[in-house]
């Protein structure tokens, strides 16, 4: 058994009341390894949406901000669930690119190409929720914490990550909401694919 998944087919509304202690282990011999299927991804997204509702109720003073490039897909998906399944109205969502705030500019391998930042609302005194697909070193979250200051002073900032790669942090950053914890070694990569840009919802562990 490569994937140990507890509570996979439980009603998503129930999931939000548990802090899920689940995490995924895997067999190194197969490559790439499927960590999460489309169905499992859907359940986790529902749980994350419910957890957000628990803390933010009607979202009147909350904005969701997807971190470019890949956090925007999770953000759109969660926003869609909140709106369509849980009746949240006038949800404000944006995207934030952190390329120009990165601490590895001029270091080997850092990308120069930026992505679109779209924040057409005021974040001053708002509760901001950053959303990303994989939390790894924590450096892009650090950059996002600086970048968001260009748009005002939020009342609070929380962080939601779909995949939390534990034991790989370079900075003291912890997510407030996490979809799935994954323990992987440094030369492995967690690849989250979304149907919007890659045709299917699936999470792989690639060696």
């Amino acid at each position: 058994m490569d994937i140990i998944l507890k509570s996979t087919f439980v009603d998503p509304c129930l999931l939000c009341i548990f802090d899920l202690g689940v995490f995924t282990t895997y067999n190194y011999t197969m490559n790439p390894k499927v960590l999460l299927t489309s169905k499992e991804i859907d359940i986790i997204l529902h749980r994350l949406a419910c957890q957000l509702i628990e803390n933010h109720l009607d979202f009147s003073n909350t904005v969701l901000i997807g971190l470019q490039p890949r956090g925007v897909f999770v953000t759109q998906r969660i926003a869609q669930l909140l709106t369509d399944c849980y009746g949240v109205k006038d949800l404000k969502i944006g995207s934030l690119d952190t390329t120009f705030f990165s601490d590895d500019f001029r270091r080997k391998g850092s990308p120069l190409q930026a992505n679109k930042t779209l924040i057409d609302f005021i974040v001053e005194d708002k509760n901001v929720v950053f959303i990303d697909d994989v939390l790894y070193t924590g450096r892009s979250v650090r950059a996002a914490l600086t970048a968001i200051q260009s748009f005002g002073r939020p009342s609070s900032i929380e962080f939601l990550t779909f995949i939390d790669r534990r034991f790989s942090r370079h900075l003291p950053i912890m997510p407030n909401y996490k979809g799935r914890k994954v323990d992987a070694i440094a030369d492995e990569r967690v690849e989250v694919r979304w149907r919007e840009n890659q045709g299917e919802d699936i999470v792989y562990l690639v060696k």
């Binding site: 120009f100 992505n115 679109k116 930042t117 200051q149």
Partner: peptide
């Protein structure tokens, strides 16, 4: 030009500065 598009958005923010 593509990079300038992003900087144009930056210089229209309330705080128009990046630390690059």
């Amino acid at each position: 030009f593509d990079t300038a598009d992003h900087f144009k958005e930056v210089i229209n923010r309330p705080i128009k500065k990046v630390p690059s």
